[in-house]
């Protein structure tokens, strides 16, 4: 499964990169690669079964804390 994910990402990279190299868009290539790597890391974490926090659950917790801090005495 992990190999499959890495393979897919490699394929995506090879599909996009040559065009950018040919046009000498180096900055674009760098940003693209970094973003893809971030995506790869998170995908691997997900596939690897790491329990990433759910985004909205995270916000609910944060805002509950903020709300408590803003209402003193309770």
């Amino acid at each position: 499964m992990i190999l499959l994910v890495v393979g897919v990402f490699l394929l995506l990279f090879l599909w996009e990169a040559p065009g950018l190299v040919a046009k000498e868009y180096w900055r674009e290539l760098a940003v693209f690669t970094i973003l893809l790597l971030i995506g790869l890391v998170f995908s691997l974490l997900l596939v690897g079964g790491v329990e990433l926090p759910y985004i909205e659950s995270f916000w609910i917790k944060v805002f509950a804390k903020v709300g408590k801090a803003l209402t003193p005495g309770s």
Binding site: G39, E56, S57
Partner: peptide
């Protein structure tokens, strides 16, 4: 950057990841 086009693909992936990890259930 001079073009946004190569960024569409990685952000599409991000959207996928976010969609998978945004809420555990509809009630949340």
């Amino acid at each position: 950057l001079r073009t946004y086009r190569p960024l569409a693909l990685p952000f599409g992936l991000f959207l996928l990841l976010v969609a998978e990890r945004i809420f555990p259930s509809i009630s949340e």
